[in-house]
Design a protein around this nucleic acid. Structure first.
Length: 289
DNA sequence: CTCCAGGGATGAT
DNA sequence: ATCATCCATGGA
C-alpha cells in the first residue's frame, strides 16, 4: 500500500508514455524494471503487490518505494499544474488529465520502445513491446499471470535484424539493433548522459540510429526527467495549430518549437502530455483504450 | 526546401 | 475482401 494523493493510475498508464501494462478487471499488471507488479488504485490508496523475487533472492528495495519512484509521486503536481498557462485549451486538458503524472522510466527500455514507436500508433506499439518482451525478456510470475521484463541492450544486441523483424518492427529493426550494439559495446552509456545539459543530451540522443527530434524529446521527458522537453507529434502539432495559431498561415515547425519552448516553459513536458492525452481521448475518429 | 520508403493495424467502402 | 489512413526518421 502506498499513499497516492493527486495521482490517477489509469490516466497515467494510458497516456502513451508506456505500452506494456495490461488491465485485468480493476488491476494493472506489468513490470517495473525486473519486478512483476500488480497495481490497483482505490481513491487515494494505491495497492501494490509484486511477484516472486528474481533468481537470487537477495536484498530487494521495498516495493512501495519503487512504485512511488516510477510514478514520480514526489513531483509537486499541484504546483506544476498551477504554473501551466491559463488558456482554454490548457485548462480543458488540465481538467481532463487530473492526476496524470510523467513516469520515470528505465532509460534503455524507454529509448528502445520509442525507437520502435516511429510511424506507429499506440495499439501497434503495444504489440511490438509485447513481442520484444516475450521473445527476449525474462518471464516473471505474479498471481496466475506471467509478465516479461524488457530485454537488455546486450540481449537485443545478440539478436539479429531478422529476429527483430519477426517482432513486427519492420525497418525499425535495423535502428534498434544498431543502437543496442552501441550501448552493449560501451560506445554509449545512457546513465552517464544524465549529467548533460538539455541541449547536449538531445544532440547525443539524436546521434543514435532511429532517434530524431521527436523520439529524443520523448526519451528526455520520460526517462531523463527533463520536464521542459516537448515532443511534437501529429496530435500535438494539430492541437497547437488549432488552439494557438488559428487562421495563421505559414506556421513552420521551427515556429511551433519556439512557441512551445517559451509559452509552456519549465514544465512544458507536462503541458504537452496533458494536451496530447486530452486531444487523443476526445477525438471522435477513434476509440482508444 | 520537397518527396517518399517503410509495415501492419485499423477504419472505410 | 480490398482500399485508404495513420505516422518519425533518414536519405535522395
Amino acid at each position: 500500500m502506498t499513499n497516492a494523493l493527486e495521482f490517477d493510475l489509469e490516466k497515467t498508464l494510458g497516456s502513451g508514455q508506456v505500452f506494456h501494462w495490461v488491465k485485468i478487471d480493476n488491476r494493472f499488471v506489468g513490470a517495473i524494471g525486473d519486478r512483476a507488479v500488480c497495481l490497483e488504485q482505490d481513491g487515494d490508496i494505491l495497492k501494490v503487490r509484486d511477484g516472486e523475487p528474481p533468481s537470487p533472492a537477495g536484498q530487494r528495495p521495498a516495493l512501495p518505494r519503487i512504485v512511488a519512484d516510477y510514478f514520480a509521486l514526489d513531483h509537486p503536481l499541484r504546483e506544476i499544474c498551477a504554473a501551466m498557462p491559463n488558456d482554454d485549451a490548457m485548462n480543458a486538458a488540465k481538467e481532463f488529465c487530473r492526476g496524470l503524472r510523467i513516469i520515470r522510466q528505465p532509460k534503455w527500455e524507454c529509448l528502445a520502445t520509442f525507437i520502435c514507436s516511429s510511424m506507429k500508433q499506440v495499439a501497434h506499439i503495444r504489440q511490438i513491446s509485447r513481442a520484444l518482451r516475450e521473445r527476449f525478456g525474462d518471464a516473471r510470475k505474479i498471481d496466475n499471470h506471467t509478465v516479461f521484463t524488457f530485454p537488455s541492450a546486450q540481449r537485443i544486441a545478440q539478436s539479429s535484424e531478422k529476429k527483430l523483424r519477426e517482432c513486427a518492427l519492420g525497418y525499425r529493426a535495423k535502428n534498434l539493433l544498431a543502437t543496442a550494439r552501441l550501448i552493449a559495446h560501451g560506445d554509449v552509456d545512457l546513465e552517464k548522459m544524465s549529467i548533460l545539459s538539455d541541449v547536449d543530451l538531445r544532440e547525443a540522443l539524436c546521434a543514435l540510429p532511429g532517434v530524431g527530434a521527436k523520439v529524443a524529446n520523448c526519451v528526455m521527458l520520460f526517462a531523463f526527467e527533463r520536464l521542459r522537453a516537448f515532443p511534437i507529434d501529429v496530435w500535438i502539432e494539430r492541437t497547437l495549430r488549432e488552439q494557438y495559431f488559428a487562421r495563421k498561415r505559414k506556421v513552420t515547425p521551427k515556429r511551433l518549437r519556439d512557441f512551445a519552448a517559451t509559452y509552456f516553459g519549465d514544465h512544458g513536458g507536462y503541458a504537452q502530455q496533458y494536451l496530447f492525452h486530452h486531444a487523443r481521448m476526445n477525438d471522435k475518429r477513434r476509440r482508444v483504450t
